Simulated assay, not measured.
Amino acid sequence: MRQPKASKFWVSRTSKFGEVVRKLRKSVFKTADDKELFIYVQQAFSPAADESMGDLFDHFCSGSSLVLYCGEAEAYG
């Protein structure tokens, strides 16, 4: 998998997880529609698309960052 142009992104607390996934997909694959990209919080779960980034940050931040992991294949059955 190609690396995104930037490894850090700033997003608003009110942004939805689905919006962030679309932006990351476009950054990695140069288009938002041609391939699947799986995003996980703490390498453990993929939040619902309508989950706010602020809520995710409040519950799962590491220091001052929310770390997301990306992959082209689903990690869990």
Rank of each mutant, 00 (worst) to 15 (best):
Pro4Phe: 11
Ala6Gly: 10
Ser7Glu: 14
Ser7Gln: 14
Ser7Leu: 11
Ser7Met: 12
Lys8Phe: 11
Phe9Asn: 06
Phe9Tyr: 08
Trp10Asn: 14
Val11Ala: 11
Val11Met: 09
Val11Lys: 08
Ser12Leu: 07
Thr14Trp: 14
Thr14Met: 14
Ser15Val: 13
Lys16Asn: 12
Lys16Pro: 03
Phe17Asp: 08
Phe17Pro: 06
Phe17Thr: 15
Gly18Met: 02
Gly18Lys: 10
Glu19Pro: 07
Glu19His: 15
Val20His: 08
Val20Pro: 05
Val21Lys: 07
Arg22Met: 12
Arg22Thr: 15
Lys23Val: 11
Lys23Leu: 14
Leu24Gln: 02
Arg25Ala: 15
Arg25Thr: 13
Lys26Met: 10
Lys26Val: 09
Ser27Pro: 05
Val28Ala: 14
Val28Asn: 06
Val28Glu: 11
Val28Asp: 14
Phe29Met: 14
Phe29Tyr: 13
Phe29Leu: 05
Phe29Thr: 08
Phe29Trp: 05
Lys30Trp: 10
Lys30Asp: 12
Thr31Trp: 02
Thr31Gly: 02
Ala32Asp: 13
Ala32Gly: 15
Asp33Glu: 07
Asp33Ala: 12
Asp34Val: 04
Asp34Ile: 06
Asp34Met: 01
Asp34Tyr: 03
Lys35Ser: 08
Lys35Asn: 08
Glu36Thr: 10
Glu36Gly: 09
Glu36Gln: 07
Glu36Val: 09
Glu36Trp: 10
Glu36Asp: 09
Leu37Glu: 08
Leu37Ile: 10
Phe38Gly: 15
Phe38Lys: 04
Phe38Tyr: 15
Phe38Met: 01
Ile39Cys: 15
Ile39Asp: 12
Tyr40Arg: 05
Tyr40Phe: 04
Gln42Gly: 00
Gln43Ala: 00
Ala44Cys: 09
Ala44Thr: 11
Ala44Ile: 03
Ala44Pro: 06
Ser46Gly: 08
Pro47Trp: 01
Pro47Lys: 04
Ala48Asn: 06
Ala48Trp: 00
Ala48Pro: 04
Ala49Ile: 07
Ala49Asp: 13
Ala49Lys: 01
Ala49Met: 06
Asp50His: 05
Asp50Glu: 09
Glu51Arg: 04
Ser52His: 03
Ser52Tyr: 05
Ser52Ile: 04
Ser52Val: 01
Ser52Phe: 00
Asp55Phe: 02
Asp55Val: 03
Leu56Pro: 00
Leu56Gln: 02
Asp58Glu: 03
Asp58Tyr: 04
Ser62Leu: 03
Gly63Tyr: 03
Gly63Trp: 01
Ser64Asp: 06
Ser65Thr: 05
Ser65Val: 01
Leu68Met: 04
Cys70Lys: 02
Cys70Met: 06
Cys70Tyr: 05
Cys70Pro: 02
Cys70Asp: 10
Glu72Gln: 05
Glu72Asn: 09
Glu72Thr: 15
Glu74Tyr: 04
Glu74Phe: 07
Glu74Gly: 09
Glu74Leu: 09
Ala75His: 03
Ala75Ile: 06
Tyr76Phe: 09
Tyr76Ile: 13
Tyr76Ala: 12
Gly77Cys: 09
